[in-house]
Write a protein that binds this DNA or RNA. Sequence first.
DNA 1: AGGAAGATCTACT
DNA 2: GTAGATCTTCCTA
Length: 192
Amino acid sequence: MKSNVTSKNFYKGDPKKVAKNLLGKSLIRKLRDDTLEGIIVETEAYYGLEDPASRAYKGLKKYNKMMWSEPGRIFIYNVHNNWMLNIVAHDLGKIGAVLIRAIEPTRGIETMRMNRPVSKIRDLTNGPGKLTKALRINKKLHGKKVTSKQSEIFVTENNLNFKISSSNRIGVTKDLDKHLRFFIKDNYYLSR
DNA sequence: AGGAAGATCTACT
DNA sequence: GTAGATCTTCCTA
């Protein structure tokens, strides 16, 4: 199995394209004495000033300025007491990010369950706020790169076969008229 | 000080 | 499946 870490180049380009390409990749969270890992099964693309659902819609602010920064960095914000995990992705000079909405846990499941006690394994990481809690992700990771194995959090390649489906984004009050949510068809750990 | 937020949980039909 | 209450963080006034 391939396990090369994703390159910065991987995150350069249209957020929509990057969102699709992130499916099936592994998200790895290094803790002090534990490694948590899962396969990305659901993502959403967000743009800049032209996207009313985007954190960048209202222009440059302190909390959203990461969306203007270097592709491959982590962009984290809080909503309703949940941390949202995004990876900055855009063409040079543009604005954008990909939200990780769900993962399929593959390693460190016992620790995840301690971080986020649930009765059903399915509920462990099948939502953006759920997976951040299970992986102990919070604002401290804001701005970190996912393109280095030295990082506390990074993304690696995989050789997996699957079908991609798409839909409108979830929970967004003003969505754009296109499909910007992508997910692995029929995966058990989708958020819905 | 006030309010909004890309969600989650619970309690139902 | 859907509806309503509720959580905290961080912005904006």
